[in-house]
Amino acid sequence: MTGIHDMGGRREEFGPVDKSQHELEDWERLADAVNYVLNAKGHKTTDEMRRAIESLREYREMSYYERWAAAAEALVVEKGLLTQEEIDERAAALERRWESG
């Protein structure tokens, strides 16, 4: 069974290369930076990150930095740095604040 991420040669699944570029949003820069800082400080490795990304059930449906954000979250929970409950709670609070703001 080939992993979902292992795309080399699977040309029948994909069409022409879309060359358009989206403007990075701030949360995408944040997802990028949080991952690099956690790696640099020795809290996780690039290969743990790759493994976490490959394990995402929604891999194909997610954008690039959604995968990074989701993998970072999964790894900080796996490593006991944060709990799922506190992340869920804080994210919900942020959403509420943004909606009302």
Partner: peptide, 12 residues
């Protein structure tokens, strides 16, 4: 061969 886990050898 198939190997479970995180492998950096592409299938192809």
């Amino acid at each position: 061969v198939e190997k479970k886990g995180h492998v950096r050898t592409p299938e192809y």
